[in-house]
């Protein structure tokens, strides 16, 4: 049924992962950086599921499920931090979070 080679799935997953990483590196808006993190985790999930399908191993689906929960928890904390940062700084510009340095 699956005629698409595994390497295609992996390429897609890796691409998503890389796009997410680039987002975290380049976007100053903390919300968008958070979204990029989610894209990374989605890439990971895709890789997991692709491997699972190609190995015919369903138990990893449970692992991906747990990863989803973790991702959600991470977003919750991240957004909370963004809000707190906004209150504190009046901005969620990551560039402005650079008082500590050296």
């Amino acid at each position: 049924m699956t005629n698409i080679p595994l390497s295609h799935w992996l390429a897609l997953a890796t691409a998503l992962f890389a796009i997410g990483t680039i987002g975290v590196i380049t976007r100053r808006n903390m919300l968008i950086a958070l979204m990029s993190l989610e894209i990374m985790l989605n890439g990971v999930g895709l890789a997991f599921l692709a491997f699972a399908r190609f190995r015919g191993d369903v138990s990893v689906h449970a692992a991906v499920f747990i990863v989803m929960a973790v991702a959600a928890a991470e977003v919750a904390i991240g957004l909370a931090l963004a809000i707190a940062m906004y209150r504190n700084n009046g901005s969620i510009d990551l560039d402005q979070a650079s008082r500590l340095k050296g």
């Binding site: 590196i25 100053r28 990551l94 560039d95 979070a97 650079s98 008082r99 340095k101 050296g102």
Partner: peptide, 8 residues
């Protein structure tokens, strides 16, 4: 601007 301290 590059002076570290910048998280990104």
């Amino acid at each position: 601007r590059l002076a570290t301290g910048d998280v990104q």
